[in-house]
Simulated scan of single mutants.
Amino acid sequence: MAQAAAKRGASLFALNALNSQLQQWRGIRVKVLKNNLDQALALMQRKMQSSGIERLIKNEQIRHIKNSEKRVLAKKNLERKIRSRDLARKLKAILVQKVRGL
Results as ranks from 00 to 15, higher is better:
residue 2 A to W: 03
residue 6 A to C: 05
residue 89 R to T: 08
residue 77 N to T: 02
residue 71 R to Q: 14
residue 65 I to V: 11
residue 77 N to M: 10
residue 88 A to H: 11
residue 44 M to L: 12
residue 8 R to D: 02
residue 44 M to Y: 07
residue 90 K to V: 11
residue 82 I to T: 03
residue 68 S to Y: 03
residue 79 E to M: 06
residue 20 S to E: 15
residue 54 E to C: 04
residue 9 G to M: 15
residue 6 A to L: 14
residue 100 R to I: 03
residue 89 R to A: 15
residue 70 K to R: 09
residue 86 D to R: 10
residue 79 E to Y: 05
residue 32 V to N: 02
residue 38 D to E: 14
residue 28 I to P: 02
residue 17 A to G: 08
residue 75 K to F: 03
residue 42 A to Q: 12
residue 94 I to K: 09
residue 81 K to N: 02
residue 73 L to R: 15
residue 2 A to E: 10
residue 51 S to R: 02
residue 41 L to N: 09
residue 34 K to V: 12
residue 55 R to M: 10
residue 48 M to K: 13
residue 68 S to L: 07
residue 10 A to H: 03
residue 60 E to Y: 07
residue 95 L to I: 07
residue 10 A to T: 00
residue 41 L to S: 03
residue 93 A to K: 08
residue 50 S to W: 04
residue 46 R to A: 13
residue 51 S to N: 11
residue 19 N to S: 15
residue 70 K to V: 06
residue 40 A to D: 05
residue 57 I to D: 05
residue 88 A to P: 04
residue 99 V to I: 08
residue 95 L to F: 07
residue 89 R to Y: 09
residue 89 R to V: 10
residue 2 A to H: 04
residue 22 L to T: 10
residue 83 R to G: 01
residue 18 L to P: 00
residue 37 L to D: 12
residue 93 A to Y: 07
residue 45 Q to W: 00
residue 67 N to V: 06
residue 101 G to D: 07
residue 97 Q to K: 14
residue 42 A to E: 07
residue 5 A to Q: 08
residue 91 L to T: 09
residue 66 K to T: 10
residue 74 A to L: 10
residue 76 K to F: 06
residue 5 A to W: 01
residue 42 A to K: 03
residue 61 Q to F: 13
residue 23 Q to C: 12
residue 90 K to N: 14
residue 48 M to W: 08
residue 66 K to A: 12
residue 61 Q to T: 09
residue 87 L to D: 06
residue 35 N to G: 02
residue 99 V to C: 06
residue 27 G to E: 06
residue 48 M to D: 02
residue 96 V to F: 05
residue 7 K to E: 11
residue 73 L to C: 01
residue 51 S to Q: 02
residue 65 I to L: 05
residue 47 K to S: 07
residue 23 Q to S: 12
residue 31 K to F: 13
residue 50 S to Y: 07
residue 22 L to Y: 11
residue 25 W to S: 13
residue 70 K to P: 00
residue 100 R to A: 13
residue 10 A to Y: 04
residue 61 Q to C: 02
residue 88 A to D: 08
residue 64 H to A: 11
residue 73 L to G: 01
residue 42 A to S: 09
residue 81 K to L: 05
residue 21 Q to V: 02
residue 56 L to K: 09
residue 5 A to R: 11
residue 9 G to N: 15
residue 26 R to L: 14
residue 95 L to G: 11
residue 64 H to K: 08
residue 21 Q to C: 04
residue 83 R to I: 02
residue 5 A to K: 05
residue 69 E to F: 00
residue 44 M to K: 07
residue 5 A to L: 13
residue 94 I to V: 09
residue 35 N to M: 03
residue 91 L to S: 04
residue 54 E to N: 08
residue 56 L to I: 04
residue 36 N to I: 13
residue 16 N to T: 11
residue 32 V to G: 11
residue 22 L to A: 13
residue 9 G to Y: 05
residue 30 V to F: 07
residue 16 N to W: 05
residue 93 A to V: 06
residue 6 A to E: 14
residue 88 A to K: 10
